[in-house]
């Protein structure tokens, strides 16, 4: 008896296995297979690309690369490092000198602001000692306005026009 597999419930279960394929996979599959077959056909006729190199090229290439890498690195001589403190005596003497210089520097640095403040204080005291009216008179007696020209602008213009030619004026301007 021939069994109807298509409509069999068991077969339906087998068909719905949960596997999926990318979108349009089966549309593109035949094209992919054809392309693979074409590539295989090319390969059976054309194994290599036909390019060649000069004789012993790869031996020379390796030598050239090594000259630019390993050999070049060897030629760069590393600078010799000279130790600054060979003995502990020099090391401690250097430290002592450093402390001494720093100490002197700090001492004088603390001294100088005090002197500056003393000078500023004495100047201020001098101003307090002068009478206020004397200072006001002194400021008001000074003419701070701009100096006015003695001659009027028209007089000056006339003087220039009478004493200088137009050529002289053009060249000087």
């Amino acid at each position: 008896m021939k069994q109807d597999f298509e409509n069999d419930e068991w077969m339906k279960g087998v068909r719905e296995t949960g596997f999926t394929t990318p979108l349009h996979y089966f549309d593109e599959l035949s094209e992919s297979i054809n392309a693979r077959i074409s590539a295989e056909k090319f390969k059976s006729v054309i194994q290599n690309d036909g390019h060649t190199v000069p004789d012993n090229y790869f031996e020379k290439l390796q030598a050239n690369i090594l000259a630019k890498t390993i050999t070049e690195d060897k030629q760069i001589v590393k600078p010799k490092v000279v130790r600054l403190w060979k003995s502990s005596l020099v090391k401690y003497a250097s430290a002592a000198c450093f402390l001494l210089v720093t100490g002197i520097g700090l001492y004088f640095n603390k001294q100088s602001p005090a002197q500056q403040s003393v000078t500023a204080d004495s100047t201020e005291q001098m101003l307090y000692d002068i009478d206020e009216q004397v200072i006001i008179d002194h400021i008001s007696s000074n003419d701070l306005a701009q100096p006015k020209p003695n001659a009027a602008d028209t007089d000056l213009e006339n003087y220039i026009l009478t004493n200088y030619s137009q050529n002289e004026l053009t060249t000087s301007l």
Partner: peptide, 13 residues
């Protein structure tokens, strides 16, 4: 001067 491929190789290139 460094290509000695035949006609088909040249065509492929």
């Amino acid at each position: 001067s460094y290509f000695n491929g035949d006609k088909i190789q040249l065509k492929l290139q």
